[in-house]
């Protein structure tokens, strides 16, 4: 006679299985713990428990020191040297000459009056790009997150669709859009269907900047949407219930509940997107090559070209430009942190 298993059977089987696993796993866990304990206990006895924290962060500090701090210091040294030799000991010390070259300008708003005109074109283009791209990313990510947070049809599908471009290689993204925007491309085919005249979208100096902003927003907003979506989902639904009892409409919900509680997440999005925007290189390099002319050449491309692409590689000038970029980013981030702290205090 077949006997039907009751829940208590499953429970017993499960407990037994866990017991076996536990028996198997225990030595796997305990052995390393014992080994680590054997190493750490004498150290703790010697340095004291208060200082053990330093010991634990040491591996991370070493990695940071070797791969971040040391290159930064080396870059600082390179910025103070001239010539074209690669090794620091072969390079003559020139003090602040490279910075003087970068800042040798009659009128900072007119790059043609500057000795390093391409540096100032890069600065000007970077500022424009950052303002429009970061604004675009924050705005469109927020709108998309708000929509995807609602109970709409095929919500999971749309969440995947908006995130999908983030998974693509920047080169692939840029090549796809280049194909769309070229003169014999998809966009002009559509434009012509509607009877309008086709255009060389990337050759027009004004449109070129628009399109590099558009493509980078398209490619990256999925990531920031995801962060904002997580922020929206962490807002307790009771607050919306309370506000609806108080008679608040959708706008008031957004203005007085959503936005204040989303501000810390918005701040994270703002800082991350700002840093990414200032460092932007890959999408633009493939899409326009920094052109037409230098219209979409950002500061990072200037650093790359000066230091690596030219036959006579000016590492010192390139390092000085990257220091200017690094310091600008640091100032911007500190400013944002300060503003963020002020708004959270308010």
């Amino acid at each position: 006679m077949n006997r039907t298993a009751d829940p208590s059977d499953h429970e017993r089987m499960g407990t037994r299985a866990l017991g076996i696993l536990d028996e198997l796993a225990r030595p796997l866990i305990l052995l390393p713990v014992a080994a680590v304990d054997r190493i750490l206990t004498p150290i703790q006895k010697r340095v004291g428990i208060d200082k053990m924290g330093y010991f634990f962060v040491l591996p991370n500090l070493l990695i940071f020191g070797i791969f971040v701090l040391f290159p930064m210091l080396l870059n600082f040294y390179y910025a103070m040297t001239g010539g074209t030799k690669l090794f620091p000991e072969d390079r003559p010390f020139v003090g602040l000459d490279n910075f003087a070259t970068l800042f040798d300008c009659d009128d900072f708003l007119s790059p043609n009056t500057c000795q390093e005109d391409l540096f100032w074109r890069g600065i000007s283009n970077t500022i424009q790009f950052v303002v429009f791209q970061v604004s675009g990313i924050v705005f469109f990510s927020l709108v998309t997150a708000l929509v995807l947070n609602r109970k709409i049809v095929a919500r999971g599908f749309f969440r995947s669709v908006f995130f999908y471009p983030v998974l693509l290689s920047p080169v692939v993204v840029a090549l796809i859009w280049k194909w769309v925007l070229q003169h014999e491309g998809v966009l002009n085919a559509i434009v012509e269907i509607f009877g309008a005249e086709s255009k060389r979208w990337l050759l027009d100096t004004n449109w070129a900047m628009f399109w590099v902003v558009f493509v980078s927003v398209w490619a990256l907003m999925g990531f920031y949407t995801l962060i904002l979506l997580a922020g929206l989902q962490s807002i307790p639904p009771e607050l919306y219930e309370a506000s609806s009892i108080d008679g608040a409409n959708h706008w008031q919900d957004f203005r007085f509940v959503t936005m204040p509680l989303l501000m810390p997440t918005m701040f994270v999005v703002l800082v991350l997107s700002l840093i990414r925007a200032v460092q932007m290189f890959d999408h633009i390099f493939v899409l326009t090559g920094g052109g037409p002319g230098t219209r979409t050449q950002l500061i990072v491309q200037y650093i790359y070209t000066t230091g690596f692409s030219n036959q006579i590689q000016l590492f010192g000038l390139s390092a000085a430009a990257s220091m200017v970029l690094g310091i600008s980013l640091l100032v911007l981030t500190l400013l944002q942190l300060r503003l963020g702290n002020q708004s959270s205090l308010a």
Binding site: G83, N112, D117, T294, I312
Partner: peptide, 26 residues
Amino acid sequence: MVGELTLDEAIDRIQDDVDTALAEQG
């Protein structure tokens, strides 16, 4: 070609770029 420099400015810049690079090269 895209109007960022006049032709004469472009030629001056070519010369400057080459002179600067060669001076660094030593």
